[in-house]
């Protein structure tokens, strides 16, 4: 068992366990913190897949930005004075059955499929240069549009929340 394999299983365990905690925990605050753990695990997966830049972005944006936003959302929408911030569930049984079947079918089809994979994998390099050149060449329009989109989202979110 190489370090790579060990790291994979470790991160996979972190991801799946924390994700399970996210969706099953009764307390929203617990869910939020479990979600942070999940994002960590996913960031580790990104690193394993040779995407160092994306892994860092994942940490900064998700853990530093989105998760904080979620926590604020949780706290602002529940009465802080209440000792436990709980949340109800519904249609658990049909959802469990169908989603269990769904994931079974999904895994079965993934396993049965013969994916076309490269013969020999390249050693991962620092990907920052590649991403930068692609963003500034092939995807320049999309890049600019996303910038505009973010601006719109910023203004829109501010104006919606202010009302």
């Amino acid at each position: 068992m190489t370090y790579y394999t060990f790291a994979f299983y470790a991160f996979a365990a972190i991801i799946l366990l924390s994700a399970y905690a996210v969706v099953t925990s009764k307390n929203v605050i617990y869910s939020a913190f479990s979600l942070m753990l999940t994002f960590f695990g996913v960031a580790g997966f990104y690193a394993l897949l040779g995407a160092d830049f994306i892994a860092i972005v994942q940490l900064i944006v998700y853990v530093g930005g989105i998760l904080t936003l979620m926590l604020f959302g949780v706290m602002l929408t529940n009465k802080i004075t209440e000792t436990e911030i709980k949340t109800g569930v519904f249609q658990v049984l049909p959802a469990s059955i169908i989603i269990g079947m769904f994931s079974g079918v999904l895994i079965a089809s993934i396993s049965n499929n013969r994916w076309t994979v490269a013969e020999k994998l390249n050693n991962p390099q620092n990907s920052l240069v590649g991403i930068g050149s692609i963003l500034m060449n092939e995807y320049i329009l999309i890049f600019e549009l996303l910038g505009v989109l973010l601006l719109i989202a910023l203004i829109g979110a501010a104006s919606i929340a202010r009302k």
Binding site: Q91, P94, A95, I98, I99, F102
Partner: peptide
């Protein structure tokens, strides 16, 4: 949410 369940079922 109910609809999503149905969508998943249909997908299966």
């Amino acid at each position: 949410q109910t609809y999503i369940v149905m969508v998943a079922f249909s997908l299966i």
